[in-house]
Computed example of a mutant assay.
Amino acid sequence: MNNVDHNDEKSLLLLLREGNHTAFEILYNRHSPQLLFKLDGKLPEAAQADDIVQELFVKLWERREQIDPEKPFAGYLYRIAQRMLIDHYRRIARNTLLYKEIHGVGEITNFTEEAFAAKETQQLLDDALKGLTPRQREVFQLCKIQGRSYKEAAAILEISPETVHVHLVKATQAVKSHLFTHQKYISGALAVALILSERLLNS
């Protein structure tokens, strides 16, 4: 790196493409503060913004050979951050819908912060899935979380669709029991997730 101008971003990107760790560190230190600043205002917790930025740069390193040094790097990073933020809220939205489907709850508000409620919902579902057998968990994730049909799940797991149905019934009952026991309710987290996603696309 001694023969490279640290202010010459194109040179740094070329070195990054070759797997140079020093170039990676320079680019991380240069761009991560601005990314954190932009993401921090779109998330309820600063730690979530930091997690996204860390994951973004891990992805960047893994896909470094795809970087085009001729294009603005800051814009490239922010586009990735946008997609990751949208994915983050889409996961919240999916889990919110799943919670409502299983628990059969209406618009009951126990939390004033919807994003916090969504986080609680995520944690409850994670805890509930840990209590399932490995096969029940596989079936539940395929059918309920990924939205696959019995036939698709059966092909992936190499079991019959009827067996998928049996496991799914047991898994759903167990998850519902866990959620009922803890008596946690959510309200408009899905709406908040979609609104924030739209804001991000227009920002």
Results as ranks from 00 to 15, higher is better:
Asp8Met: 05
Leu39Asp: 01
His167Pro: 01
Ala118His: 02
Ser32Glu: 01
Leu43Met: 10
Ala115Gln: 04
Ala189Phe: 00
Val164Tyr: 03
Lys42Gly: 01
Leu98Gln: 00
Lys10Arg: 14
Leu56Glu: 04
Tyr99Thr: 07
Gln183Tyr: 14
Ala171Glu: 00
Leu129Glu: 11
Met84Trp: 08
Glu101Arg: 13
Gln173Lys: 14
Phe116Glu: 00
Arg94Thr: 10
Arg90Leu: 12
Phe57Thr: 06
Gln123Glu: 14
Ile145Thr: 13
Gln54Asp: 02
Val53Thr: 03
Phe24Ala: 07
His167Phe: 08
Leu125Gly: 10
Ala191Leu: 13
Met84Asp: 04
Leu77Ala: 04
His31Phe: 10
Gly75Asn: 14
Leu77His: 03
Lys176Met: 09
Lys176His: 11
Ile67Met: 15
Asn202Glu: 11
Leu13Cys: 07
Leu43Pro: 01
Ala23Ile: 05
Ser187Leu: 11
Ser11Tyr: 01
Leu179Pro: 04
Arg30Val: 04
Ile26Cys: 06
Pro33Gln: 07
Lys144His: 14
Asp50Pro: 02
Pro134Val: 14
Asp8Ala: 14
Gly188Phe: 05
Ala47Ser: 10
Ile80Val: 15
Asp51Ile: 04
Asp40Trp: 07
Thr181Asn: 12
Cys143Asn: 08
Asp87Ala: 12
Thr109Ile: 01
Ala47Val: 12
Leu39Cys: 10
Glu65Asn: 14
Tyr99Ala: 04
Ala115Val: 03
Ala171Ile: 05
Asp5Val: 05
Arg135Gln: 15
Val139Ile: 14
Leu129Gln: 09
Thr163Cys: 08
Ile80Arg: 06
Leu190Arg: 05
Glu138Asn: 10
Cys143Gln: 09
Gln173Ser: 15
Leu190Pro: 00
Gln54Ser: 13
Val169Glu: 13
Tyr78His: 15
Val164Ala: 03
Ser177Lys: 12
Ala115Trp: 02
Pro161Cys: 08
Gln136Trp: 09
Gly75Ser: 14
Pro134Ile: 13
Ala189Val: 04
Glu120Asp: 10
Val164His: 03
Glu45Asn: 06
Leu98Phe: 11
Leu97Lys: 10
Gln82Glu: 13
Asn29Asp: 07
Gly147Pro: 06
Tyr28Arg: 00
Arg64Gln: 07
Tyr89Gln: 02
Leu15Ala: 12
Ala81His: 02
Ile86His: 05
Ala49Gly: 10
Lys100Val: 08
Glu158Asp: 13
Thr22Val: 07
Arg94Phe: 08
His165Ala: 05
Ala174Leu: 07
Thr96Trp: 00
Lys170Thr: 08
Asn29Gln: 11
Leu200Glu: 08
Lys10Ile: 11
Ser197Leu: 05
Gly75Tyr: 14
Leu60Asn: 04
Glu62Ile: 01
Ile108Val: 13
Lys176Leu: 07
His31Ser: 05
Arg148Leu: 13
Lys170Val: 04
Ile186Phe: 01
Asp50Lys: 08
Leu12Tyr: 01
Ala189His: 02
